[in-house]
Write a protein that binds this DNA or RNA. Structure first.
Length: 568
RNA sequence: GUCCCCGUAGCUCAGCGGACAGAGCAACCGCCUUCUAAGCGGUAGGUCGAAGGUUCGAACCCUUCCGGGGACGCCA
């Protein structure tokens, strides 16, 4: 007898159905209805949601995939498997989500979930709302996600900001999918650019023109203004590295500002790592040594090279320049060893599209150092083009022409901004018109979803006023009405959506789902009166369903870092 | 020249091997003595850049081409 489905093992009905299908298949083999199959030829069992609800709640294409190895018509195989599913559902109804089963050409097996299974799922939500939408992983990994990593030479721009949205979303989705995640920010606080920032601040302070290759934004003037007297005295002394001293001070101040901006967005990093520390702590040296031991390093033309060509690169790469200065690539490989030394199973980098050229070489170096290349992955984020009135606006931190993250958040708010980026794929190029975004922020679908949540909160308040309380558990018969049937099928999907999002490492599915759930709820609201003192039995059952919907909406929004207001 | 990403409804974008291609906005028509109209219902709108191929089945996979963006440093 199959075990009763356990939501702490797998909260998805889809997963339970997959097991049921596998059992039906095994049973068919055991009974001789179907022959055993060489495991190499055996397809995996897949369950998906039909686009057309008339086809049921879930479908499997297993019969079609078995047609070839079995050399039998898919419909025939489907019939056998469907009979098995139906037989189990009749014999032990509590162990399978299957309600009714149909077979449809060319060989789909369509399943409609049992009300009992749906009611149980609502029970899980009511019992433990906090974990609803979190999916345990069969193999939890320690994942390091490095993102943003903008050097602290100016405020975060919208260009950098996309990485912040994408990276944080990825982390949230991975966490919901059962992975352990560390958010990491990498930056350089002692390089040429920081020196130039210092020079720009000094020039402003002295009332001199800023060098052409310096930084020109308004924030430079603010820094010059805020420069502490004692630091300025130190820097202004004869023989002092004025730009270095002021630059380090300015960059730390800028970095703190970036941290505050990210905090405002709801992104908090677990760790900030400087490029300098990788050198100071010997990680770069050790990485180079590792490569040397592996025989992948050589000296030529006064420089030290990584034999990148042995890994398919079109040319070897310099690690230490002929002037003795390590390249940026040197820091990259040092960082890889440093990260792995902290016990991560996987390193994910969120990089701008423009870094794609460096992807292969860092991964190659990781492989050369003896790490699993597959555990080092870069997710490239497409550029955001900024347009105003249809014309592209060039953004330059040095020229001081940019829109900052703070400005965006001030204009359209965190929720609308998060939704905007969450609903778009990281690799899709975005044309962003700030004026349009401002105008459209009122029509942002996020409010549609939040409104559904607020509406439910209002219903629950109203119910409490008249003394109606949601029931603690639903009976299958509570779901027989058409509005209930539609709504429950939608709310029960959250863990599946999360599972898919975690697998795809993208959050768009969650925004699409939240919209659909909100839409289904709004229809429910139209068709089903919830608070009705004249019919307390039906009322309290509907209240439970609606409360479960509220939890589901809140958790979906929470996964996106978006608030779920009690009223609007 | 090599490599990467993108090309789906008027606009912004989902869908990325399944059963009639979706949403939001924009357009048009209707719905508030009723739990929040930031809502609901309906109409209209697409040869999924093009052509071949693989598959029982392709917007989705492969090839080529066209169009847009980006990368190819002893830059960071």
């Amino acid at each position: 007898m199959p075990p009763t489905p356990d939501p702490t093992v797998d909260p998805t009905l889809r997963g339970h159905l997959r097991l049921a299908v596998a059992r039906a298949w095994a049973a068919a083999i055991a009974s001789g209805a179907l022959p055993a199959l060489d495991p190499a030829e055996a397809p995996d069992v897949r369950v998906e949601r039909p686009a057309n609800p008339d086809h049921g709640d879930a479908a499997t294409n297993l019969a079609m995939r078995l047609a070839k190895p079995y050399r039998r018509p898919p419909l025939e195989i489907a019939r056998i498997l469907a009979d098995g599913l139906a037989a189990e559902a009749a014999a032990t109804p509590g162990t399978t989500p299957v309600g009714t089963v149909d077979v449809a050409p060319p060989g789909f097996i369509n399943v409609r979930y049992a009300d009992r299974a749906l009611a149980d799922a609502v029970g899980w939500i009511l019992d433990d709302p906090m974990v609803w939408g979190r999916v345990p992983s069969a193999s939890p990994r320690n994942v390091n996600v490095e993102f943003v990593s903008a050097n602290p030479t100016g405020p975060l721009t919208l260009g950098n900001a996309r990485g912040a949205f994408v990276g944080d979303l990825l982390c949230r989705v991975l966490e919901a999918g059962g992975q352990r995640v560390v958010r990491e920010y990498y930056f350089n606080d002692s390089g040429t650019q920081v020196w130039k920032l210092g020079a720009s601040v000094i020039a402003t302070r002295r009332g001199e023109p800023i060098p052409d290759d310096g930084y020109h934004g308004d924030y430079v003037a603010e820094l010059a203004e805020a420069l502490p007297a004692d630091l300025w005295a130190e820097a202004d002394a004869p023989g002092a590295d004025a730009s270095g001293i002021v630059g380090r001070w300015a960059s730390e101040r800028v970095r703190a500002g970036i941290e505050a901006s990210l905090e405002h967005l709801g992104v908090r990093f677990d760790r900030w790592t400087t490029e300098r520390s990788l050198h100071d702590e010997g990680w770069v040296e050790r990485a180079v040594e590792r490569l040397r031991v592996a025989g992948q390093v050589y000296e030529a033309e006064g420089a030290t090279w990584f034999r990148s060509t042995s890994f398919g690169d079109d040319k070897d790469r310099v690690i230490i320049r002929s002037n003795g200065e390590p390249t940026y690539f040197a820091s990259d490989i040092g960082y890889v060893t440093e990260k792995f030394s902290r016990g991560f199973d996987e390193l994910i980098y969120i990089w701008g599209q423009d870094h794609h050229g460096t992807v292969a070489r860092v991964r190659n170096a990781a492989e050369a150092m003896g790490y699993d290349k597959a555990a080092v992955r870069m997710l490239l984020v497409a550029w955001v083009r900024f347009v105003r009135d249809g014309q592209e606006v060039a953004m330059s931190k040095r020229a001081g022409t940019f829109i900052t993250l703070d400005e965006l958040l001030a204009e359209i708010g965190v929720d609308a901004a998060r939704w905007f980026f969450a609903s778009r794929g990281p690799s899709s190029a975005i044309d962003f018109d700030i004026e349009l975004a401002k105008k459209q922020s009122n029509e942002n679908p996020v409010y549609y979803v939040q409104y559904a949540h607020a509406r439910i909160a209002s219903i629950l308040r109203r119910a409490a006023d008249v003394g109606l309380v949601p029931v603690g558990a639903l009976a299958p018969t509570d779901l027989e009405g058409a509005p209930e049937a539609a709504l429950v099928r939608e709310i029960v999907r959250l863990p599946e959506v999360v599972e898919d999002a975690a697998a795809a490492e993208e959050a768009q599915g969650v925004t699409a789902y939240a919209t659909e759930l909100a839409s289904t709820f709004h229809a429910f609201y139209r068709d089903a009166k919830v608070v009705d003192p004249a019919d307390p039995t039906r009322s309290t059952a509907r209240l439970a369903l609606v409360a479960a919907t509220k939890t589901t909406l809140a958790n979906a929004l929470g996964l996106l870092g978006i608030s779920a207001p009690e009223q609007m």
